[in-house]
Design a protein around this nucleic acid. Structure first.
Lengths: 206, 206
DNA sequence: ATAGAACGGAACCGTACGTTCCCGTATGAT
DNA sequence: ATCATACGGGAACGTACGGTTCCGTTCTAT
């Protein structure tokens, strides 16, 4: 496969990669920045997506699907509950879907499919959380929403290049993990945990 | 003191409060939003500050000074080293200077005074960190820069109104605090800690 | 009553960005 | 070899937004 079709197929991927990188770094970035990063013209973008919003929806959807995939993989693990959970957290941090999904929330009109996938990802997160708590591995005063917010905090770290950022995120994930594990003595956490509704409210545009 | 002078003095404060609130919520907010929130006209702003940048510098400077004040107060405490440190962290979270100072970094040209205060705040942070580690209360593989980044993560939490946000920040501060304390068993944190230089690099505009 | 400070807010202007449009180019069929 | 065409590059367009300026108004002090 070569020639025009090949370039088009390559551009499909180039554009998505570039868009992911650009909007992760700056959710308000202009569409021209994506084109430049991808090394293509603007019309190559508009040939594929009718608008900026459509591109954002695509990115967000892909991120959500990746999130679901990672979580399902963790749920499929049979070994130690704590290790599965810790691995799940590392997987989410590596996938880096929170940066995009959350920071883009509210900048576009969520599609039906997006809503569906969001619901599914929520259910999966609840499931792995429940399982880990029931195994007595995760301190029980930490809720699913706590974990979500914690992952957002870690995603808020952005320092140096991509590699360094990933490294630091894992550093702080390890720190947080130490606090989540059940063995050591903990004080009860203060304040009611974040409500699901509080988190989902941020998705309404405007 | 009443009449015009009084209103002017009141507006001084109103404007600063509004600016703090508005730019904390959205660092890229237009200056008109500040005027509206303060309930004054735009010219009331421009009478006091020659430009938006000047206002941002003022806000940033005030935040830094508050940070210094809180840290000095914690350093002055004589009691248990860990309690002093934990109180210091709570004080910083309450003062909420990180949101502004960090998120505004790079959006304006730092003044000489800003540099000076930043250096002083860095020295103070190093001092209280050193003191706490030497007292054996803070796990020694956590650096000053780690603490700075941790505080930034907590400042990245913004959910619901101001009160709720503060509540959640304290919740996660408590969680992090559990991981920082020395008694329980910890794994060595992975990856080199953030360097001072990495953090300061973000201050250059552009 | 009047000068003048402080203000409110409309108007101005430059910029930035999403989108459209036109043209060059390479491709694949004839 | 030629030609019709799909594709992509990037300039051009229109619009929205936001910093700054400016002018008319209001209120105070004398």
């Amino acid at each position: 496969m070569s020639g025009r079709k090949a370039q088009a197929a390559r551009n499909d991927e180039l554009i998505l990669q570039a868009a992911r990188a650009v909007f992760t770094a700056d959710p308000g970035a202009p569409i021209a920045a994506v084109a430049e990063k991808a090394g293509v013209g603007i019309s190559a973008l508009y040939r594929r997506y009718p608008s900026k919003e459509a591109l954002l929806q695509k990115l967000c959807g892909d991120g959500l699907k990746l999130y679901i995939e990672v979580t399902e993989r963790a749920l499929a693990e049979e070994g130690d509950a704590w290790e599965a959970f810790a691995g799940y957290l590392r997987g989410i941090v590596d996938a880096d879907t929170n940066s995009l999904t959350i920071k883009l929330a509210g900048t576009f009109h969520p599609t039906e499919e997006l809503h569906h996938d969001a619901a599914r990802s929520g259910a999966l997160a609840t499931e792995i959380h429940r399982r880990t708590v029931e195994a007595g591995a995760l301190r029980p005063d930490v809720t699913v929403a706590d974990i979500a917010l914690l992952l957002e905090q870690i995603a808020s770290i952005r320092l140096g290049d991509e590699k360094r950022t990933a490294q630091l995120r894992h550093r702080f994930l390890a720190l947080a993990t130490d606090a989540l594990r059940v063995p050591p003595g903990h004080r009860e956490l203060p304040g009611p945990p974040p409500e699901d509704e509080e988190l989902s409210a941020r998705w309404s545009p405007g």
